[in-house]
């Protein structure tokens, strides 16, 4: 599986990373280098092996249904690059 320029462009768009046209060939080479290398896994026999998602606990611990957080409007907004009153503001979105 090797990436072409169009795929690099699409993946960058999915990841919301602006990539300048002139940088695409370099990225394409780099990504193909990495992907070509990880391709080696295809050779490993994993028949019947249960995928391992994480290193942690066997099951979720559940917390009680109590309001213990929130009520900190100003702290939530304090780092915002743009805000209007108590809202975060972004360029207008057309749905």
């Amino acid at each position: 599986m090797s990436l072409d320029t169009a795929t690099v462009r699409r993946v960058a768009s999915l990841a919301r990373l602006r990539v300048e046209e002139q940088d695409l060939p370099r990225l394409e080479t780099e990504l193909n280098g990495i992907l070509g290398w990880i391709e080696q896994l295809q050779a490993v026999d994993t028949t019947g092996v249960e995928p391992m998602a994480g290193g942690g606990a066997e099951s979720l611990r559940m917390r009680e249904d109590q309001v213990t957080d929130g009520g900190q409007q100003q702290a939530v907004l304090a780092n915002a690059p743009d805000r209007a009153d108590a809202f975060f503001a972004v360029p207008k979105v057309v749905e």
């Binding site: 993946v11 999915l14 990841a15 990225l27 896994l41 994993t46």
Partner: peptide, 29 residues
């Protein structure tokens, strides 16, 4: 950026099983 792009690619439609699930299986091994 490189890692975000690789990560986005290996999770994207059509490649998830070949890359991500495979890697999780090897991780189990």
């Amino acid at each position: 950026k490189r890692r975000i792009l690789v990560g986005t690619y290996v999770l994207s439609a059509g490649y998830y099983d070949a890359y991500y699930v495979k890697a999780q299986q090897v991780r189990a091994l």
